[in-house]
Computed example of a mutant assay.
Amino acid sequence: HPGEMARLAGLATAEVQRDRIGLARRFATEHGVTLVLKGARSVIAAPDGRVYVNVTGHPGMATGGSGDVLTGIITAMLAQGLDAVQAAAFGAYLHGLAGEQAAAARSGNPASLLAGDIIEAL
Rank of each mutant, 00 (worst) to 15 (best):
L78N: 08
E100S: 08
G99D: 10
L35T: 05
L113E: 05
A92K: 02
L78H: 07
Q86H: 15
M61H: 02
A89D: 07
H58A: 09
L70N: 09
G96C: 05
A46Y: 01
P47R: 01
V55K: 11
V16P: 04
S42D: 05
V69K: 13
G10H: 07
G72H: 06
R18E: 15
T29L: 09
T75N: 10
A103Y: 14
A28C: 10
V53W: 00
L11W: 07
T63G: 03
T75W: 07
A76G: 15
A103I: 10
L35W: 03
L94I: 11
D117E: 06
A104F: 08
G108V: 10
L37W: 00
R50Q: 06
T34W: 01
G57D: 04
V43M: 00
H31N: 15
A24F: 06
A40I: 08
M61G: 06
E30M: 03
D19E: 11
V53L: 14
P59Q: 06
A84D: 11
M61C: 07
L35M: 12
A111G: 12
G32L: 00
S112I: 09
G96M: 05
Y93H: 15
V33D: 08
H95G: 10
A111C: 02
S66T: 14
G22N: 05
S66D: 06
M5F: 15
H95P: 11
F90D: 03
M61W: 02
P47H: 02
F90Y: 11
A102W: 13
G91Q: 05
L114E: 14
L37Q: 05
L70A: 06
T56C: 12
P47L: 03
A98C: 14
R41A: 12
K38N: 05
